[in-house]
């Protein structure tokens, strides 16, 4: 009988513990330093597995009929920095995209120069980390083309995008890509949406498109591009504005 009682008590405790761990415990664990790191390790696994399974496969391209009536903007929709306001006031005629860091040929390109490069138009789906999707037609130059012009050095590992929009905490938006995504044929620096000049809410005058990742990777209001060996010393060190807030650097799921 004693044994049965002890077993019953164990059962009850085990159930109560499972419940407590699952509900209250998850909150407490989320606040620790180590638990999010353990949980985050799954992202490396997802990146490796999904990368191996899909390699250079192309994101689905849609038809004109699939295009969303409005390409819903999210995050910054109207940057207020003086530098950006001045450019916008002048119809972005003075805009130049700087490309630097670990490259053999640092350069800066005007919008006209960017538009004169070979371009690619793609009707692709945009998946927001919040869960919704919209479809739009994007035109721009392949990032790989610009990288070939600038020639990354052997030490370069990541492409870092710096933007004009200041976030709530005062820092500037930024993002980064590994070379697998940077050289993917559908990764473009876009200057047109649905056949029209890129509107300000969607990232004028130039934004990144990486259709095989979630929306937050696709930096808007591009200011400059740097090639780096590591992004550990940039801003919060996690490789992007949202990554510094705890979002995954690999945003393929």
């Amino acid at each position: 009988m004693k044994l049965i009682n002890r077993r019953r008590r164990f059962l009850r405790d085990a159930l109560a513990l499972t419940g407590a761990v699952a509900l209250g415990g998850c909150d407490k664990l989320s606040e620790t330093d180590w638990a999010p790191k353990v949980l985050g390790s799954a992202t490396a696994l997802s990146h490796a597995a999904q990368g191996a399974l899909s390699r250079n496969a192309m994101a689905r391209e849609y038809t004109e009929a699939d295009i969303s009536p409005e390409f819903r903007p999210n995050g910054s929709t109207d940057p207020q920095s003086a530098a950006y306001r001045a450019l916008a006031a002048n119809g972005f005629r003075g805009y130049r995209l700087a490309i630097g860091g670990l490259v053999a040929h640092p350069m800066s390109l005007s919008l006209d120069e960017l538009r004169a490069l070979p371009n690619r138009t793609q009707i692709t789906r945009h998946d927001c980390v919040e869960g919704w999707s919209v479809i739009g037609k994007w035109t721009g130059v392949q990032l790989s083309h610009v990288l070939h012009m600038a020639q990354p050095t052997a030490a370069a590992r990541y492409v870092v995008f710096r933007c004009y929009d200041a976030m709530d905490d005062g820092s500037e938006y930024y993002e980064s890509l590994g070379f697998d995504d940077a050289y993917h044929p559908q990764t473009i620096l876009a200057w047109a949406l649905n056949g029209k000049t890129l509107p300000i809410p969607n990232g004028a005058p130039l934004r990144l498109r990486v259709p095989r990742q979630l929306g937050y990777k696709m930096a808007k209001y591009l200011r400059r591009i740097d090639l780096v060996a590591s992004f550990k010393d940039i801003e919060g060190g996690a490789g992007g504005y949202w990554e510094d807030q705890g979002y995954q650097w690999y945003a393929g799921i």
Partner: peptide
């Protein structure tokens, strides 16, 4: 997996 934009390039 079908919600993953990366996997959709092979799970279209």
């Amino acid at each position: 997996l079908a919600m993953s934009p990366r996997m959709d390039s092979v799970l279209g």
